[in-house]
Write a protein that binds this DNA or RNA. Structure first.
Lengths: 149, 149
DNA sequence: ATACATTAAATGTCGCAACATTGGTTCCAA
DNA sequence: TTGGAACCAATGTTGCGACATTTAATGTAT
């Protein structure tokens, strides 16, 4: 659907305002679809992303700092997201022996298994972009990179 | 900066995954900048957007339903956002005489004045997209529209 | 007129973003 | 060696997104 219809706004001040709104609106649209896909598994997107980072480290532990560095949203509260995952026994927390300020966070077998079950979800969502050609997708990334220069 | 560096991820599965992440990441980047610009005025982005809708209706009132329809995020809680604006005397709430289920919400003079003061902020941020040419911005919108088809 | 469905807004709950502050640990320099 | 800076995680607070439920008003069909 055209952006104008989605947000009931007839006109935009210029192509920049329209593009700005479109980036924000489309991101929300994508995130909502993805979140809905993970919901049946009791996982929120931030939780899923943390689990993925932990799997990437596995079997080495990660610290909260490392999670923050790797998360899309650097100002989020990794500590409290880990709380939720720990409550679900998807990760373990243990004070780092070599530096008692840090905390070693590890994904559990249950966490790994949950990631296995949801393996295809994110990929399936990416396919949502398949009404773009490969070239268009690449072009889109280039334009977005340019915005943030 | 290139996306790979921003999120410390070296490789992407394919151009679709990369584009997906890039849309989400860039939207966050844009929103964060915009929110920071409004912060000195004590306005959050949702609050600002509601005020804009109310100005668009002014001097006619809007209902909560109308706000929801026009907001980018349709699942947000317009009712509570109006609470915050009302507490700051930027809007008024009054039971609609012709339909006592509905509530007439109006922007106050103070609300209009605040919008005047922040007039240039959103435009200024759109300029952030000015390292795109007009054609590129239009192209970006087209690609995003295509994703949501 | 009364029962029932529908509608509008408000409220409750949970999880996250943003930001400030705290508490404990380690590092380092005087 | 000790006092302060730097560091890491946790915690507190506010506001929003998502979703379910509630309360009140209105519409409607009998």
């Amino acid at each position: 659907m055209k952006l104008e219809d989605e947000i009931q706004q007839r006109a935009f001040k210029n192509v920049y305002q329209k593009a700005h709104l479109n980036v924000v609106f489309t991101a929300g649209w994508l995130q909502q679809r993805l979140a809905a896909a993970f919901k049946p598994y009791g996982l929120t997107l931030p939780q899923y992303n943390v689990l993925r980072i932990l799997r990437g480290q596995h079997p080495k532990p990660a610290t909260v700092n490392l999670l923050i560095e790797r998360m899309l949203d650097k100002t989020s509260n990794a500590s409290r997201i880990v709380d939720k995952l720990e409550a679900k026994h998807l990760v373990t927390r243990q004070i780092c022996p070599s530096n008692r300020r840090a905390v070693d966070i590890r994904i559990t077998e249950a966490g790994l298994e949950l990631l296995r079950q949801t393996e295809s979800l994110a990929d399936g969502q990416d396919q949502g972009l398949r009404n773009l050609t490969d070239e268009e997708a690449a072009q889109l990334s280039d334009l977005l990179d340019k915005i943030r220069d």
